[in-house]
């Protein structure tokens, strides 16, 4: 780990001021990803600005719809309003990491989580365009079991590892950020990027901006009765997704009134297509409807040597997630 200066800020203005003054500084939240990457010299900030004590950003309000960026993943998942109104988000959060890590990890930090691509995380591999732009992509012809099947480029086939982000994409959250020039709101669909020619850039957040809140549309609480987060992985717990599905349904009798659908583990960002959701509206909630939506969502999927199995697995997972969402809460 490279040496770094440490400073602790207590309010949002001081945080923005500190980050804007130093292009090599990074914000420190829970640190579960950043400190880990610093130990392996993948990340090497000159200064860490500890924002964990910033006032006013660790609360959940407005019936679970307004989430402070510093709310820890475990607190968010267990917040009574979130469990009641946005169980899809709770379930996604509880599917990720371990209780210890969820106690540290923050909402803002989870949004900024970097890929778990082996070639990105290990500096012994010379080629990684995300870590070292222009060096190539070792995963293209390497062990690419956990890599992307959608939205990838020749420069990068990494995936976003977050579960929370997938639920936020399905629920169409907005990310509230604050910079030296004021505040702005970024729709979740525009927050994470596809790799394209610049895979080193994960998000549209600017260096000098601080994530302050994540907001959920109150209408998304209508998915509460019929929602499910399905995570398919190599072991039952404490593992990243091969594929995951955030599924929500608003029902009117036997007919689907509205659907929410996003996938994790398949792309550089949570994978959502409005057309796939729209195709379900007005249809009967059955395997045929779910399968048709899966075909739209997975259209154009391309596998590599070790991950082609994901395409069929993803389609099956969409059908299974909606089937479980339809059953709904039993307690």
């Amino acid at each position: 780990m490279n040496p770094f200066a440490y400073e602790r800020v207590m309010d949002d203005k001081a945080a923005v001021h500190a980050i804007a003054a130093n292009k090599d500084a990074k914000f420190l939240g829970g640190g579960t990803n950043l400190i880990d990457l610093m130990k392996d010299n993948v990340e090497h900030p000159s200064t860490l600005i500890d924002i964990t004590r910033v006032q006013g950003l660790a609360e959940v309000s407005n019936g679970g719809a307004m989430i402070g960026a510093l709310v820890r993943n475990s607190d968010l998942a267990n917040h009574a309003d979130v469990r009641k109104n946005y169980p899809l988000l709770s379930m996604a959060l509880l599917s990720g990491a371990s209780p210890q890590l969820r106690n540290l990890a923050t909402t803002g930090g989870n949004l900024m989580q970097r890929t778990r691509c082996y070639y990105f995380m290990d500096t012994a591999f010379p080629a990684c365009n995300k870590r070292k732009p222009g060096s190539g992509c070792a995963a293209l012809t390497g062990f690419n079991r956990i890599h992307a099947i959608l939205g990838q480029s020749e420069e990068c086939i990494a995936t976003n590892p977050s579960d929370m982000n997938v639920a936020l994409a399905a629920l169409q959250a907005e990310v509230h950020v604050e910079g030296p020039k004021g505040k702005r709101t970024i729709p979740i669909a525009e927050f994470h990027r596809l790799p394209g020619k610049t895979p080193q850039i994960d998000t549209t957040l600017k260096h000098e901006e601080l994530i302050t809140h994540v907001a959920l549309p109150s209408s998304a609480s209508e998915f509460a009765t019929h929602s499910y987060y399905l995570k398919v992985r190599d072991r039952q717990s404490y593992a990243f997704a091969l594929v995951s599905v955030a599924a929500g349904l608003m029902m009117e009798g036997d007919t689907i009134k509205r659907a929410a659908l996003a996938m994790g583990g398949v792309a550089h960002k949570p994978w959502r297509k409005k057309e796939a959701e729209d195709a379900m509206v007005g249809k009967q909630a059955n395997a045929q409807t779910f399968s048709a939506a899966a075909e739209i969502l997975l259209h154009g999927a391309k596998g590599y040597e070790h991950n082609s199995f994901k395409i069929e697995m993803a389609k099956n997972s969409v059908v299974r997630a909606f089937s479980l969402a339809l059953v709904g809460r039993t307690a």
Partner: peptide, 8 residues
Amino acid sequence: RVNSCLLL
């Protein structure tokens, strides 16, 4: 409970 190896 937290992982003390990842907490400065």
